[in-house]
Design a protein around this nucleic acid. Structure first.
Length: 303
DNA sequence: GAACCGTGGAT
DNA sequence: TATCCAAGGTT
């Protein structure tokens, strides 16, 4: 930032009225294929499960897992009683398996402390493990019909571009939430559709790398319309290959696919660096993602 | 605030 | 083939 340069005036965001008037007809026309958890009759628990599964995993990959999961464990009490090994295997290759552990913790808390009823208040939802600001709002809005801003990565990007920036910052800020809130109409059901439509706009049109401003229903009210996204990563990217996460992933994959407990020799075969492997295995044990039997062999945790 | 936590689809 | 990044959350 040049110290002497005049501070750029932030672009004004679209008014709630204009946004709803443009966005909702577009949403009705271009909505993606129905996601299974949007079917009428989906329970609050089903919505919660879908949102946790969708944290950093594409919804297209989530859908089949969600179907099998909900058929097997329809209610919190069902998941609460399941062997954790089964839970981790059903989670499969969606990534970040700690989410599966936290989801089972959620199930146990909802079953025992909330009488099996998923809370509807975002602050209450945020007390549950693995439920942050976005997921709490999503459940409160998309299932319970509350009026709250639902700010995921798509909404943050869309709002940033409305304001003339190419992308949002690295972390969700109060400003992001306030900006998204300022876009919502007063009517809760309409606000919910606007939030969903903003997410969809970000996923289909106002994409990270190549926004299609020509296909955007709000382009004339957008401060970034027609501009190119600067080349290169918009934020710092994490490596995966060769890192601790990679090792953890290999160990978890081995144990998910194994028939029974596996010996140290088979663990050692998944990674050449013994130090890295020891560290990863220790972490996984400490986090409850794997366990050991009485013979010292490794397996997914029974509970 | 920054680093960390998996895996695969899209380009 | 390599890189980007995805309905984020926690530490």
């Amino acid at each position: 930032m040049g110290g002497m340069r005049a501070v750029e005036t932030p672009e004004a965001l679209p008014s709630p009225d204009l946004l709803a008037e443009r966005l909702l007809p577009w949403f009705d026309a271009y909505n993606r294929t129905e996601l299974p958890w949007r079917r009428p009759g989906t329970t609050a628990w089903g919505v919660l499960v879908s949102e946790v599964m969708s944290q950093q995993t594409q919804v297209a990959r989530v859908a089949p897992v969600w179907e099998a999961w909900m058929a097997r464990w329809p209610a919190p009490a069902d998941l609460a009683d399941a062997p954790t090994a089964d839970v981790l295997r059903e989670w499969g290759r969606m990534g970040y398996p700690r989410r599966a552990l936290r989801l089972q913790e959620c199930a146990r808390i909802v079953a025992t402390e909330h009488g099996g009823v998923v809370p509807s208040d975002p602050a209450e939802l945020e007390r549950l493990p693995g439920i942050g600001v976005y997921t709490a709002a999503a459940i409160a809005v998309f299932h319970y019909g509350g009026r709250h801003a639902v700010v995921d990565t798509n909404v943050r990007r869309v709002v940033a571009r409305f304001g003339g920036r190419s992308d949002a910052g690295t972390a969700t800020t109060r400003t992001d939430l306030a900006d998204a809130e300022s876009l919502l109409p007063p009517d809760a059901p309409t606000a919910a559709r606007v939030s969903l439509a903003l997410m969809e706009l970000g996923a289909l049109v106002c994409t990270a790398r190549k926004p299609e401003c020509g296909a955007c229903p709000v382009s004339d009210a957008c401060g970034f319309s027609g501009q190119e996204v600067p080349a290169g990563p918009s934020r710092k990217r994490q490596k995966y290959k060769g890192t601790n996460r990679h090792v953890r992933g290999e160990v978890m994959a081995l144990l998910r696919e194994a028939e029974g407990p596996v010996g140290r020799d088979r663990i050692d075969a998944v990674w050449p660096d013994a130090r890295m492997l020891d560290e990863a295995v220790s972490q996984l044990i400490a986090e409850g993602l794997i366990g050991t039997d009485e013979a010292g062999r490794f397996e997914l945790p029974s509970q």
